[in-house]
Write a protein that binds this DNA or RNA. Structure first.
Lengths: 206, 206
DNA sequence: ATATTATTCAAACGATCGTTTGGTTTCCCG
DNA sequence: CGGGAAACCAAACGATCGTTTGAATAATAT
């Protein structure tokens, strides 16, 4: 990720993704980050303005595409005659599954996503809400039709918890490396199916 | 938690639990912590030696009891003629559910537990592994009998991920407060059942 | 080739962190 | 009551953090 044929900005983004996944946002220092990226310490502030904004850009680089995939999948699901809760959840999870299987940092980014859920950083939540809140809003609306017995507050609470647990479960925080990439893909796909069923049960509960 | 009839050590532990849950271990500063506990800044180092050791003691205060409950429940399950995977998972989750329903900080501590999973702090992991690793080891042995097709490495990996997701899902990180305590208890119990089924499916997958 | 802009760099700044110090107060037992 | 241990407190220490500075270098355009 710090190969010389990447630009300074790209090397910083790559190192940031890696170190944010490993140490969290506050835990990753700009000194270790810039050393990993093989750039000068001041390069982060020069190219991104601040560490906070670097965090934003790490998310933007991946979330624009992930959100688009999720909304596409949701639109296809809602076009069906009788969409199920599992269909909607699949539209939410499957794009993240694809991202986690991506070879160039996608899996690392899913771990960063899980960090974002765990660290209840107010500033970051505001950024994500302002830029990608409409995605969760559309999914919440789709869920709401399937779950008329839940009021808005209760639904949002459940989506928040479930989305966090789903993301965490997909994030693969374990220390042990898996053996074969092929077996990993199969495992993740099956895990995603189980996650969908678990989340559907959690949403359907009275 | 900072009532004057609590001792200084207890006030510090209570404030630490609260602030660790809200801001994480690195994110909670001793200055805010001691201000919340209404004690002097130096009191933490006087009574606990260091911030790291304070983190340890926050866990020890709750985990001794939680681990004992889990091992008791596991022993009862293994005494049955045909224990199922769900039985073993229930022995792991149910004590945590009881803790999360505890009125005096138990729910807050479950959020701290979820933090511990998300922050991959090496020092903290070592402390937890040394002091409570035998609990996970006994559960892993019980799982292993039910899941002979999984080798040790794969089993530990799955337990790590699943335990993290379970803990996170139980941690109730959502901002929205629930309305009635009674409805919360019912909701959590049902959520625990769903979690058990989800985790069992994840463990049983090839 | 020269002027202008963009980028990189070593060094320092101010703020905040956990921790330590030395003195004061409080408590308790002989 | 008196004396020694325990507890508390304000203040300072050293380290590390994100950020800024101003000069040196590289790249680009006229």
């Amino acid at each position: 990720m710090n190969s010389p044929h990447f630009s300074t900005k790209e090397r910083i983004l790559g190192a940031a993704e890696e170190l944010f996944a490993r140490h969290g946002f506050a835990g990753a220092s700009l000194r270790e980050l810039t050393a990993t990226a093989k750039v000068n310490l001041a390069a982060v502030n020069y190219h991104f303005g601040s560490k906070d904004n670097l965090v934003n850009e790490v998310f933007r680089r991946r979330l624009d595409e992930l959100s688009a995939h999720r909304l596409d999948a949701l639109q296809q699901v809602l076009a069906k005659p009788q969409p199920t809760l599992e269909d909607i959840l699949s539209a939410f999870i499957h794009p993240a599954l694809l991202l986690s299987l991506d070879k160039s940092g996608g899996a690392t980014f899913v771990r960063v996503l899980a960090r974002a859920y765990a660290e209840h950083n107010e500033r970051l939540r505001k950024f994500l809400s302002e830029n990608y809140g409409h995605v969760l809003k559309e999914f919440a609306a789709a869920f709401s039709i399937q779950l008329p017995h839940l009021d808005k507050e209760e639904l949002y609470w459940r989506i928040d918890i479930i989305a966090g647990a789903l993301t965490y479960a997909m994030a693969d925080f374990g220390v042990i490396k898996r053996r074969a990439a092929m077996s990993e893909k199969i495992h993740r796909e099956r895990a995603a199916e189980h996650l969908i069923r678990f989340a559907a049960a959690g949403l359907r509960a009275d």
